[in-house]
Write a protein that binds this DNA or RNA. Structure first.
Ligand code: ZN
Ligand code: ZN
Ligand code: ZN
Ligand code: ZN
Lengths: 172, 172
DNA sequence: ACTTGACCTGTTATGATATTACATTCATAT
DNA sequence: ATATGAATGTAATATCATAACAGGTCAAGT
């Protein structure tokens, strides 16, 4: 028995090989479908702007700045002022459909929407591709380090910079 | 035998209890002394601005924004344009005398200058105190997660938000 | 049908963070 | 003393983010 840790975690955490070749059209469509399911289940509204922002983020496994997103929105006929982008991004992040990458001041679509997961991010310094890895083991290690100091961890940010397999091969 | 992992790591990594009461005057003086040793050994120049910035960061175990530092510098008669602060901060970070806290767009003095250490940061959401914990175990866990994806981690950012013991007691 | 109220979108304006480019000064080594 | 590179000062600008308010949409309750 797979013992899911969370009611929302009916499916196992499937690795999304952002670095590897994959059927990205399916990857994108699937993420959108899940996003609709997640929002509907929570009584939230995946409005046109929000949905379009998610689509934009999903186009590539990279992180986009809010102003990059905004420029895309503007050409689509949506508003072209910063809050339009920031609000949609905030909504997506708040409900687990996107993540903020602190090191890049940028945003990326979640590759596991609807699944319970604590993401750590692997960011290629050459091609800027972002992949999600499971942060739970690292978090456990940190809890161990924090406990003797009396510090209670609530949220954690883990971002690893490095080289993805493709760029590693290219530079070799 | 203690087997130091690094030539520069003659002393063991002493925990600096940023959250606990401690002789902070000594804490500060010691950090400055170490900073002088580190820079001298590397043939670097701990100039007045750089030293002053380090002193400012050392005053409290909190992170300061570049403009906060800049304001302090200006009242001390140094330049009052952003690059003055950013350059000194960059120097300190580059040589391990300070760290950048990504989540806060801010900087904090290193509490283990001259020691080999991979810092993870524990940031109290209430009082903004920042402590360093050892990130090596968490990093090992991450390497394990990244390896099957073919991703090679080079640098890692780990920042935990939570409650320090003092604020935890206060809110209870 | 009408009103209400919550939520969403658009816009203006501003604030906060960070860098580029260039001029000047300082430390050091011929 | 003089050439060199490093460090600092300054102006201008780029980039990232939010506050405040106005109008629009939509569904619930009357
Ligand atoms: Zn994909
Ligand atoms: Zn890459
Ligand atoms: Zn101290
Ligand atoms: Zn605290």
């Amino acid at each position: 028995m797979p013992t899911p840790q969370n009611p929302a975690d009916a499916t196992a955490m499937m690795p999304v090989p952002a670095f590897a070749a994959h059927d990205h059209a399916h990857c994108t469509a699937d993420a959108l479908t899940r996003a609709e399911a997640v929002t509907a289940a929570a009584g939230l509204r995946l409005t046109p702007v929000r949905r379009r922002v998610l689509e934009i983020l999903l186009e590539e496994h990279r992180a986009l700045g809010a102003y990059d997103v905004l420029a895309r929105l503007a050409t689509d006929g949506f508003g072209n002022q910063p809050p339009v982008a920031y609000r949609a991004l905030e909504f997506l992040v708040e409900h687990g459909l996107a993540h903020r990458i602190q090191r890049l001041n940028a945003f990326t679509a979640c590759t596991h929407p609807g699944e319970a997961h604590a993401p750590a991010f692997l960011i290629c310094r050459t091609c800027a591709t972002v992949a999600e890895a499971e942060a739970a083991p690292a978090r456990a290690a940190l809890d161990t380090a924090a406990a003797p100091l009396g510090f209670v961890i609530e949220r954690i940010t883990i971002e690893a910079m490095g080289l993805c397999p493709k760029c590693r091969d290219a530079s070799a």
